[in-house]
Design a protein around this nucleic acid. Sequence first.
DNA 1: CGATGCGTTGATAACTTTCAAATTTAGTGG
DNA 2: CCACTAAATTTGAAAGTTATCAACGCATCG
Lengths: 238, 238
Amino acid sequence: MLTQTTTIRNEAFRVVPPSPGLPPMARPACGAAGEAHSLDQAMRLMGAVMSYPRNAEIFGENEPADFIYKVVSGSVRTYKVLSDGRRQIGGFYLPGDIFGLQFGDDYALSAEAIGDTKVLVVKRSAFNALAGRNAAIAQEICAVTGRELRAMQARVLLLVKSAQERVASFLLEMAERAPASDAVELPMSRQDIADYLGLTIETVSRTLTALEAAAAIALPTSRRVMLRNRSALQRMNG
Amino acid sequence: MLTQTTTIRNEAFRVVPPSPGLPPMARPACGAAGEAHSLDQAMRLMGAVMSYPRNAEIFGENEPADFIYKVVSGSVRTYKVLSDGRRQIGGFYLPGDIFGLQFGDDYALSAEAIGDTKVLVVKRSAFNALAGRNAAIAQEICAVTGRELRAMQARVLLLVKSAQERVASFLLEMAERAPASDAVELPMSRQDIADYLGLTIETVSRTLTALEAAAAIALPTSRRVMLRNRSALQRMNG
DNA sequence: CGATGCGTTGATAACTTTCAAATTTAGTGG
DNA sequence: CCACTAAATTTGAAAGTTATCAACGCATCG
């Protein structure tokens, strides 16, 4: 983990050409030199692509928050381990999502690759300097933070609800973020979902089974969910 | 409520001398003219003091977020009413606390005075203009937002725990914010606490009784809590 | 082919809510 | 100041939900 950080440090300013197999969003939209005009473009110009194998740590809680990340491919979970050993997941990040944005000096949570994952890494100091020069980009960052805050508020509302409501909301949330809105591929395990929703794996599993029995969803495989009756899920949402 | 908003509009830029009965923090620390040098001072210079009786609405969800508030005396709760009628409390604000800070255009939650309350009201546009001119104040605002975000994260961690852990954490949180750290005066009702912690009033009441029986706290009156064994409460905290 | 990890299912226990009622506290008018 | 009413809080019993413990199925991988 320290080794990883060192590696990042050395590469953070070097622009790494994206590999040909990456999804469209990972490739520069235009090759213009000079200052970037969008957050997305800026990150690609300033960033380095790093690869992490399944379950690898990207950064650890309480490490200095020197970098900002954007998922290129794969997916990421942030989490915190409580003193009693329980794990609380802070969030899941899919391709295109930015994570690691911090107000404080240190990361508040740890981050891990869920499957094999590529992320764009940008040095925070360079990022902040750019934001200082470019109001449009500063605004975009503000927007990202605002979304994060709203997501957190939604999360609080979620956690006071029943198991069924939590799972239904989770599925709707993932469907909204997925490319195909009715067939959702879940990159994370049942344990990840359970730790995200504050439930046990057994309860998550049973609830999914119950939703399938109620014809609200179908489960062709355990990691693939088809939304069969979206309004039924929304009704559970409260 | 519309009437109130109108009243605020008319007074927002007028500096209102604090009434003599207010606590020290409500009085200007210095009478310097010109630009303020701290967030606290700036709000006093630009703000108007408004009074709200018990349970009065200060602003409503989805109203345009034109003002920023600071509690002078009394206390405030923010909340959201879910579609099924349940109420989720977003937070409690005590004297000195700032609330109503928003990234978006509209308030995400409603705000009400818990008891008779005085708040300092500042027009958001004036506030933002000042932040644009004064980097130190902009930083202070960032810090407030950061604290709010961290509080929200702590909240998420809280809501996945047991009733006893939630109540213990709540008491410790209130004790930290209270002037006298071992005798906590709770301005809010059991229902408010329950809606904050995602529990029922009965569970809150029973849990407090159990904590008293375990000699962790004492309850001279229902609204006054004495922390008798802080480390026992912290142990429950997870 | 056996080991291992992940997911599902079942039975039981623990915890929290719900419904109901008693008790205390606060507010109001006489 | 007292009595009375309304509101808030506490307590009890039963029902409902979720966690825990245990076993099983299924796929992947040496």
